[in-house]
Write a protein that binds this DNA or RNA. Structure first.
Lengths: 107, 107
DNA sequence: GTCGTAGTTCGATGATGACCGTACTACGGA
DNA sequence: TCCGTAGTACGGTCATCATCGAACTACGAC
């Protein structure tokens, strides 16, 4: 039979569709900022479950959706787990310094 | 009688009281982003009336208050007009690259 | 003093969005 | 085949906030 493509297609904005305002809105939330910080600190991709935030699963899904739509994170499906990673290259190319400035901040 | 100190004291956060999240929240609004862009583009300080945005005066006041509390802009009173300027030095010192990354963005 | 201009303050309203619980789908192991 | 785990989808609630108009203060010019 055909290759099983189960979960929703997970569509992201192309690099040139990413807007500063979208990125800023995405980052302007403590939970999402924590997620981005963890992704950046770990250096590699993390599953939803590997994120340590103080909200429920469904809320994490909500926030990851916003980060994805804004072009901040990408997701890769593997079995039942979805691995999320920072779109560092795209962000650095579009808004050089922005992400580093945010991540370098003490708080 | 005593020296007339009329308008509210206009208190800002000290440099070390500025948080990334506050700055991001402040910048994550189209009107406020437009204000910041105009301040940056003009290079000098601008009065409220010199800002070209598509909202009423009272809404401009509201947005400038948020930008001020976040530590993004400073204000100087002169007669009845209030001049607003970007706190570039403070922001660059705290979050190097952030502001430049935002301002360099095409949109 | 009187008027016009600059900006603030105060409600009020309407929209957005953060959050949760529950129900659901999909995969993998026993 | 049955169960546990990973994550999504949906519906609802509650808080936040962008926006406005109207009333107000302060200053400068005449």
């Amino acid at each position: 039979m055909a290759k099983s493509v189960t979960l929703p297609p997970l569509v992201y904005p192309e690099r040139d569709e990413i807007t500063v305002e979208g990125v800023l809105r995405a980052l302007a939330d403590p939970v999402r900022l924590a997620i981005v910080r963890q992704l950046a600190a770990s250096g590699h991709e993390l599953s939803c479950g590997a994120l340590t935030v103080s909200v429920t699963k469904s809320t994490i899904t909500h926030h990851l959706g916003i980060l994805r739509q804004a072009g901040v994170v990408a997701g890769r499906q593997e079995g039942t787990t979805r691995f999320n990673s920072l779109r560092r290259k795209d962000l650095d190319a579009l808004f050089p310094g922005l992400l580093d400035g945010v991540l370098a901040a003490p708080r």
